[in-house]
Write a protein that binds this DNA or RNA. Structure first.
Lengths: 205, 205
DNA sequence: CGCCTATTTGACTCGTCTCAAATAATGTGG
DNA sequence: CCACATTATTTGAGACGAGTCAAATAGGCG
């Protein structure tokens, strides 16, 4: 969903994060943007009774926090590391703006990217409102399988539940069912997708 | 949510629409954008079994269809009139681009607006996933009360349900409950909000 | 007035949430 | 490296919100 990304060779300013360490939080004003060098980052909001709703998972190579910089608003979401050993680097608003202004093509590219993303949200909303917990779980697993490069997915059950938008217990029951049907294997918290096709079939009902 | 809007004095090219008449539809490529001169427009996607999920309601003064033009993708949503006597006018991609290019400030303003909108989607997703049907119904009524300028809301129950993301029958039961509590009055399909504060209280639970 | 569609009501089912408790995994200090 | 403490995960039972289907009523329009 977030296809704004670029490569950096010098990872000075690189910050190491453990799971759940906060990158930025709601209400604060941005001082720059963050490039994800390694690991996964969750973007989320707190709902009623403090339950997190994960809005987006960002992968290494992606940039986060630029919406607030570009809109000149405060953050309206929170960002935190989804796993240990996540590393990010900080790019100040000044550096970012300088880069932006020095590259006149970027304006148009930005407009195009932002519009594309905006379009994708419509799909996301429809997925979240019209699909069942089982279907959304399959959706999340397909996404994470890709994010983990077909390796073992290693995410807290609670985070998984917050991605799917359900209770942790409900998520676990679905996971068990998938395990029973040999669609995935589960070793402690690690999940490996065996049968991607089945997951895709489940998504579409 | 859609704050891109501007005034036009000449409404040549103006098109009159009846309820449910299509403005554009998913998969097609845009030839331009549409300015809503009068009435309300629903932006929606079809979910499984053809159920509409309304993503957005746009009011007069707003512009629709520009995301697909700016991203250079096909439409990924549908747009149709929510009520009779909706009137729109068409602005070709050429005219739009000419306007955009003749106004160098607009680039930055566009980037800012698109980023702002992108931020708001996070709130929308959180509302849709974490709130109950009752809360989302209150949310929809508050929005429509404003859109109808505190006058009577006049929207098909089915559309209301599709905004809320629920079954028509479920929506009707909630509406009845609100009526019983004197939060709204209902005359045939027309709904008048009496007690805005109660609705806002319900939204926050 | 009468047809057709939209709205409403009722009864029932099912998915999902909640709460409580058991078990497993992980981390910590000795 | 073990024993304990702490946290995460899993299971079970029960309740409740919301969806479905079918049928009745009301509204709008020719």
């Amino acid at each position: 969903m977030n296809s704004l990304s670029y490569n950096r060779d010098n990872h000075t300013n690189s910050i190491q994060l453990k799971r759940n360490e906060v990158i930025f939080s709601e209400g604060k004003y941005p001082k720059g943007i963050f490039y994800i060098h390694k690991g996964l980052v969750k973007i989320f909001k707190y709902g009623k009774d403090g339950k997190e709703q994960i809005i987006q998972i960002c992968k290494s190579g992606e940039v986060i926090g630029f919406r607030a910089v570009l809109s000149e608003n405060s953050y309206n979401v929170n960002a935190a590391a989804l796993e240990d050993n996540t590393s990010i680097c900080f790019i100040s608003t000044n550096d970012f703006n300088q880069y932006k202004n020095s590259n006149p093509q970027l304006q148009n590219r930005l407009i195009q990217e932002l519009s594309s993303e905006l379009q994708e949200w419509a799909d996301f909303v429809t997925d979240m409102t019209q699909r069942t917990v089982r279907q959304r779980t399959a959706l999340a697993l397909v996404f994470l399988n890709e994010a983990y490069d077909e390796k073992e997915i290693n995410v807290a059950r609670e985070d998984l539940a917050n991605m799917v938008g359900t209770a942790t217990e409900s998520l676990i029951r679905i996971i068990n069912e998938f395990k029973k049907h040999s669609i995935i294997t589960v070793k402690a918290r690690r999940i490996k997708v065996l049968d991607l096709q089945s997951l895709k079939r489940i998504i579409e009902d």
